[in-house]
Amino acid sequence: MKYLLVLLVIVIAVGVWRSRRRAENLEARRPAARADNRLQPPQDMVACAHCGLHLPRSDALVLGSAPHPVYYCSAEHRAQGPA
């Protein structure tokens, strides 16, 4: 009976230790998860003048200037010109 009581105390102690450790791990992960879940602001999309692929304006290659710039998805398509 004495060994059963010791075993019960050990099982309870291990359970408490694991639950505290799990709670600490969850608290450590929460700030990182919040930073990843932030939405990025929408970006203006443009179409490649050669193939019609839509891509963000920040990634596009521009030929010409305002008021009528021409956007391309790659240097190859810019060299080939509009389709």
Rank of each mutant, 00 (worst) to 15 (best):
G15C: 02
Y3Q: 13
G15N: 01
K2F: 12
H77A: 09
A75P: 04
R38A: 06
R38M: 07
L39I: 09
V14C: 02
V14Y: 01
R38Q: 12
N37Y: 08
R22L: 13
A13K: 00
E76H: 11
M45S: 08
V6D: 05
P42C: 12
C51S: 05
A83H: 01
A49L: 03
S74W: 03
P31E: 01
Q80V: 00
Q43V: 11
S58P: 07
S65N: 10
L8T: 05
Q40A: 15
C48R: 02
A60F: 02
R20T: 08
L55G: 08
A60Y: 01
V62F: 04
L55P: 08
D59R: 14
C73G: 01
V46E: 00
H68L: 09
P41L: 09
L39Y: 08
A13F: 01
G81R: 07
A79L: 03
P82A: 06
S19A: 04
V9I: 13
S19P: 01
P42F: 13
A28T: 10
H54M: 07
V16W: 06
M45G: 07
A47G: 04
A66D: 14
P31H: 07
R78M: 15
V14S: 03
A83W: 00
E24I: 04
K2A: 14
G52F: 00
L63W: 15
A13V: 00
L39D: 11
L7T: 01
L53A: 13
L8E: 07
S65K: 11
R29M: 13
L7E: 00
R20S: 14
R21H: 13
P41F: 02
P56D: 09
Q43I: 05
V46Y: 00
R20V: 10
C73M: 01
